[in-house]
Amino acid sequence: MEALLSSPVNRAELLLSKLLPYYLLGMLSMAVITFCAVFLMGVPFRGSVLLLGVVTTFFLLSVLGIGLLISSTTRDQFNSAQMALNVAFLPAVMLSGFLFEIASMPAPIRAFTYLLPPRYFVSSLQTLFLSGNVGSILWPDILFLMGTSALFLSLAARATTRRLDG
């Protein structure tokens, strides 16, 4: 990290260089998974591939933002790993609408799910695969994912500066 700090890159470039490889990795995984779903499992895909790319991009940006935020607020890798697993795994399973209907949850928890990127990703994937390009579902999902990307990335950027200054 010190070596990186002394090099003449600015904060945005630093974050970007951290994001880009993982973003590409995520897109690649998504392509493999989609391929398997359609050709191996016979799941229909009725929406547009372009929109799938857009949705996945903003989802990845949001979760990468969360990842960067965790990594810049925890002190070592061990703690980050624990934090990441706790933040990513169970909330995505329990609160995304994947297993349990969000509408049936109590109001405070329903409000909390708006902060979770998986919520919008699950909803758009269900729609893109099974139903098609339904604008009234996909556009709000994409807008919210843009919002969570902006929120978590800017929080991560701020956390990084603080760490560098302090």
Partner: peptide
């Protein structure tokens, strides 16, 4: 504290 409240298989408010 959080998950048991979320984990409902009932359908409500629909």
């Amino acid at each position: 504290l959080l998950f048991p409240f979320a984990a409902t298989l009932e359908v409500r408010n629909n």
